[in-house]
Design a protein around this nucleic acid. Structure first.
Lengths: 337, 337
DNA sequence: AAAATCAGTGTGATCGTTCACGCAAATCAT
DNA sequence: ATGATTTGCGTGAACGATCACACTGATTTT
């Protein structure tokens, strides 16, 4: 009995082919234990023979689950490292990717809900939003943030301790004898950046030093991080403020900062010491190689994914905050005074 | 008549609320023209009031369409620029993202088919696969490649002319008087890289020159592009082969290459001229700023997306190949002999 | 040996939407 | 004024899977 032409086979077709009922096929598909080995074998053979493929729509309709998770990146110039997706154990899950601006976040989450995603992986370093508001948007969908969100207690997140990061960077410069330490960051609206800025100030004051000159630029829109770093450094140089060291928000901006210093005939580290953040692949290969605060972004993302999957399987898991500690990598861009 | 607790409203609920039949609600949802304006208004109000949301599963089941497209990145260290997704006009589409190795490609496409994606956006610069084989895997799902695949006539793709790219780079060096031109690339298994290598050789020979020393490394697995560039350059330097210029496969590798040259006390461009590819953001800010072959990756991706959407709406569109022409950006890393 | 359990399988109903069709009222043409 | 078309809306039947339940025969318990 041939089935209609040009149509994908259904479990009923498979059932007929294997000489069992459609329910038995369903059981095989869902790894139900109570299926006789021989029957299972026959069903699997029929599936292969007919090139049967489950109908996701029907499955979603009945189960109200999609086995998809939402990857959401908000206002980020460098979204989380996409290649890392390869290293995540996805099981049956698929990833729906969206990046959006803060303004569009509710819409983006709504669309995710439409797709019945089972969890949301959020990377939103610039996002200022209360836990309650965010949880309300998610409407019950499990969410994990891959951010350092110190004041967030009701949402699970995995983040690098930005306070510690800045402390070790600034302390390193102080230990080297630097007294006038400048800072170049992206927008302070970034949670991480504002933390870094505050702690930079605080650490200096704790050590009896004045905060040095600072520049902040926004590279979300048209300018790249590198240009922003370049312009920020130029601004400080033009202001005539004195400094012997500069803290830069990330290794990308540092490329611009170093370029600005060079164009003003300042040598690194002879005239100015540079410390930055991220330990990006290029940081070791610049001239000079950068002293930088190292984060393991892969680890961070993997942990966040792991927590998300846990939360999906066990929705009552209480939120927990996982703080990772960065460390300083000493290279050639700093020197003792 | 209150509906069951804790359940999302359905079109029937909306219909009751609005005092119409469920079919009318469906018509409103699908922008059917034959709905009285007043009725449409009432339905929309009811939708808003009940916070109704379409059930994707039911919709997929009935229509056999998912309004999702698959983003597929094969064996790429730098997957297509994800932030660009923001600039694509998605309409109702969503993006399912996967990256995989060449080996896993059939599985990845199968999973895409499972999700009933309506199109596949493929970025697979290293992929050696015949059109027929690829089309067979896709099993009727429209596909567009964001690659330069010269021998592919049955698949729509958008790519930068790699032949032209290498010609202008090599010709530039020849015009400057260089006679011994080295090359450092990633794996030659990359379609683009192998093209570049072949054309480099060909262009030199056409100009009566011997191909200079070359090095190729693979940075898919553990090493980064930068390290590969560093090691490749070191290998050539250690071999003692003479050269006055080097062509590098991309601006990332160029960071490593320049680092290698510096560590051997060679000055750029005084001792060695460097030309590379991509015009990445950092290329203008290195020391010296890089002369590089510029590609507009955003444009390339946007065009590919556009073609994909066209192909989805008009499946009989014959495949067409869109070749973009790169141009050389002259900066400070090359000099006349 | 009768009762209880369990392994293995099948039947009916259901998830929420859309398609094909039907039908009344309003509008148009002749 | 009669028939033909159009407008607006409703009814029934799918789409393909899963869940709840029922049933048979074999195995175990009492």
């Amino acid at each position: 009995m041939p089935r209609a032409k040009n149509k994908r086979p259904t479990i009923v077709d498979v059932a007929n082919q294997a000489g069992v009922s459609y329910q038995t096929v369903s059981r095989v598909l869902n790894d139900h234990p109570r299926v006789a080995p021989g029957t299972r074998e026959r069903v699997l053979l029929a599936i292969q023979h007919l090139d049967y493929r489950r109908n996701k729509g029907a499955q979603m309709l009945k189960t109200q689950r999609s086995s998809a998770i939402q990857l959401l990146s908000v206002d980020a110039e460098y979204p989380f490292e996409v290649p890392l997706l390869n290293t995540v154990h996805w099981g049956d899950y698929s990833a729906i990717y969206t990046d959006c601006t803060q303004k569009d976040l509710p819409r983006a989450i709504d669309k995710a809900a439409l797709h019945m995603v089972e969890g949301i992986f959020l990377y939103a370093p610039r996002l200022h939003v209360g836990d309650d508001e965010l949880l309300a948007m998610c409407d019950g969908i499990p969410i994990v943030r891959r951010d350092f969100v110190l004041d967030s207690k009701r949402i699970t997140w995995v983040g690098y301790d930005q306070i510690h990061a800045t402390r070790i960077a600034v302390q390193h410069l102080i230990d080297l004898g630097h007294r006038a330490i400048a800072v170049v960051t992206g927008t302070l609206r970034t949670i991480n950046a504002s933390w870094r800025y505050e702690i930079w100030k605080k650490t200096l004051i704790e050590n009896g030093l004045e905060p040095g000159p600072s520049a902040h630029g926004d590279y979300t829109t048209t300018k790249t991080a590198i240009e922003t770093g370049y312009e920020g450094m130029c601004k400080i140089l033009k202001s005539g403020a004195q400094f012997t060291a500069v803290l830069v928000a990330n290794d990308h901006m540092a490329i611009g900062v170093m370029h600005a210093l060079r164009s003003h005939n300042l040598r690194i580290p002879d005239d100015v010491s540079v410390v930055s953040y991220d330990n990006s692949p290029h940081s070791a290969f610049l001239d000079p190689p950068l002293t930088t605060v190292a984060f393991d972004f892969d680890l961070q993302s993997r942990l966040a994914f792991q927590f998300l999957f846990e939360l999906i399987n066990e929705p009552d898991t209480p939120p927990h905050q996982h703080v990772l500690l960065p460390h300083l990598i000493l290279r050639k861009s700093t020197r003792a005074l």
